[in-house]
Nucleic acid binder design. Structure first.
Length: 553
RNA sequence: UGGGCCGUCGCCAAGCGGUUAAGGCACCGGGUUUUGAUCCCGGCAUUCGGAGGUUCGAAUCCUCCCGGCCCAGCCA
């Protein structure tokens, strides 16, 4: 029943792995890891990394760990840890090991002592500002710190006392002794440890020093026997340091770091800083706002895990800085939802239609297929009645060319029901349309009208049997393909990114919808019952994506 | 000449010295259709950032040039 996900096309990482396997490197083992810092919510960019790491493990019969890179306790918390686990699970992946960088704090410390003994690390007592000044610039080499040649004994003593909590934050750091003149600034005696007298969610107050990313990541990878450590392009310059640490420490495993390009998606923002700004300055209603590119936001929007996985496969993995068009993501979600969603009818902006040639109180029960191509999806009943609702967009007194809907004096097919003809338009004193008075052709139920063609088909909901609902229509959050390039996010926001329709009418079957259940509202798009706000008393639906529309409006 | 990386169709992306330069998205036709949806069928790079060179043969190798991205946290 489930359509198999598209076959994996080759990419440079798979090629590297194929070569490694052919050479029997690592005895043919493949171990990857997804290593988020628990300081925020995961977004579609992380999904690319998750699909890559877990996908490769699955494809090559390997393993993939989920590892929390929790080396900076001032920015991290449990809320994010839980959210990240939920998101990875929801996306459909199971981690082999659940790890934390903090699991290795003891080993990391002992390795650092080893580096000091080797003469490869020293305690620098310069201020942060002095360190920065001595580092040099992109074009000029750095200068050695006056503390660079401290004795091993002194370094050992100072480092032990840093650990013991004898010093205040910032008093000392532990640095690798590499090359202050390196063209690669990461090699100019990078910081290994800094003093941070703060509580850590997992290690409590055990530590007053915490290891830096560059030192921690490579060692953690080695501890877990990771074979291929996949990260994004900005870490390319860090690879020499990654390799230096593992080489000097002579760790039994030396994973290979491979870098790939971050995802850039048009009309949205993936920068953590800007995402935080959207939430904190109330441009959206939280991390799970359906307009957010977060996993939790996309979930609430109605996206499916399979569609997101398909998207990540389709965009590929390269080292090119490339912008993906939103149409790619939309196509993925439409394909999945078209395949799996039951059809329903819903009217978002109702106009009353009275079928004048039907007796008062007339009703008739009609049977509708839940899917036009899939009989096994079953059928449901829909009540047709003398008074019905149709959508405002489906009637026009001044129709544009090629308009195929209802016009004064014109005919249109009510989906699954009769052909009606608009005989009269009733307006208020203010000129607003209050109702349409129509007649119907009783000989058109399940048949084409005789002697004429009626091309248009519109959806409708019975005024007597329909159910009231709220429908939130979402659109892209920004009106610029590359938002964030301007100074102010606000200027680029799409003012119509969320339009709430409070008085909608939906067919009765929809009152049984479960939260997160997805449907196609015929002719409108794909919708999901809101994960949090939907109830059978007051149904609430979010538009996931519109239907493809080739009719130029 | 700070260091590192990247340039194949509008957007992605295969390609790894000999292929008619895959495929997807988008777009443009045409057919089916009681969703202007879906589905089907067809079209869409004589050319791979540019210029030289090597070779019987180059998107693939070499040289130079042009354009773009990343790096100066005691963040990750």
């Amino acid at each position: 029943m489930n359509k198999p996900e598209s076959a994996a096309t080759s990419n440079f990482i798979r090629n590297i792995i194929d070569d490694d396997l052919a050479a029997n490197k690592n005895d043919g083992r493949i171990v990857t890891r997804f290593p988020p810092e628990p300081n925020g919510y995961l977004h579609i960019g992380h999904a690319k990394s998750i699909c890559l790491n877990f996908g490769i493990a699955a494809q090559y019969n390997g393993k993939c760990n989920l590892r929390f890179d929790d080396t900076n306790p001032v920015k991290e918390n449990e809320e994010f840890v839980k959210a990240i686990k939920d998101d990875v699970t929801w996306l459909g992946f199971e981690w082999d090991g659940l790890k934390h960088a903090s699991d290795y704090f003891n080993e990391l410390y002992n390795f650092a002592v080893e580096l000091i003994k080797q003469g490869n690390a020293y305690v620098d007592s310069s201020t942060a500002e002095e360190v920065r000044e001595m580092r040099g610039t992109l074009k000029e080499p750095g200068k050695p710190s006056p503390y660079r040649d401290r004795s091993v004994e002194e370094n050992l003593d100072l480092f032990a006392r840093m650990k013991a909590g004898e010093f205040d934050d910032g008093a000392h750091i532990l640095r690798a002794k590499i090359d202050m003149a390196s063209g690669n600034i990461n090699m100019r005696d990078p910081t290994l440890y800094r003093i941070r007298k703060v509580h850590h969610v997992r290690t409590g107050n055990d530590w007053s020093i915490y290891p830096m990313y560059d030192y921690t990541h490579c060692v953690s990878d080695a501890m877990e026997n990771i074979t291929h450590s996949l990260c994004t392009l900005e870490f390319e310059d860090h690879r020499p340091l990654y390799d230096w640490v593992l080489d000097e420490l002579k760790t039994p495993a030396h994973p290979q770091q491979i870098e790939f390009a971050r995802l850039m998606l048009e009309y949205t923002i993936l920068s953590k800083r800007k995402l935080i700004q959207l939430v904190e300055e109330d441009y959206v209603k939280g991390w799970d706002d359906p307009r957010m590119p977060t996993i939790t936001g996309m979930r609430r929007r109605g996206f499916t895990p399979a569609a997101i996985r398909d998207f990540c496969e389709r965009i590929g993995v390269t080292k090119n800085d490339s912008w993906i068009e939103m149409a790619v993501l939309e196509t993925c979600i439409r394909e999945d939802l078209n395949e799996h969603s039951h059809r329903r009818m819903a009217v978002l902006e109702p106009i009353k239609v009275v079928i004048t040639d039907l007796p008062d109180g007339y009703t008739e029960t009609l049977s509708f297929a839940n899917h036009p191509q899939k009989e096994d999806f079953g059928r449901r009943d829909i009540v047709f009645s003398k008074e019905i609702w149709i959508d405002k967009d489906d009637f026009s007194e001044n129709p544009p060319p090629k308009y195929q809907r209802l016009v004064p004096g014109g005919e249109v097919r009510l989906r699954g029901s009769y052909v009606i003809k608009c005989e009269e338009v009733i307006k208020s004193d203010a000129g607003d349309i209050i109702e349409l008075r129509c007649t119907h052709d009783a000989n058109t139920l399940g048949k084409k009208p005789e002697g004429r063609k009626v091309k248009g088909v519109i959806h409708w909901v019975s005024a007597s049997a329909g159910v009231q609902a709220q429908v939130r229509v979402y659109d892209r959050l920004f009106n610029q393909p590359n938002p964030g390039s301007a100074d102010s996010l606000e200027a680029e926001l799409n003012p119509e990114s969320m339009v709430v329709h409070k008085t909608c009418y939906v067919e009765a079957a929809l009152s049984e919808a479960q939260a997160e259940e997805r449907f196609q509202f015929e002719r409108l798009g794909y919708f999901v019952a809101d994960r949090y706000d939907h109830t059978s008393e007051m149904p609430v639906f979010n538009r996931t994506v519109s239907l493809r529309d080739t009719w130029a409006r």
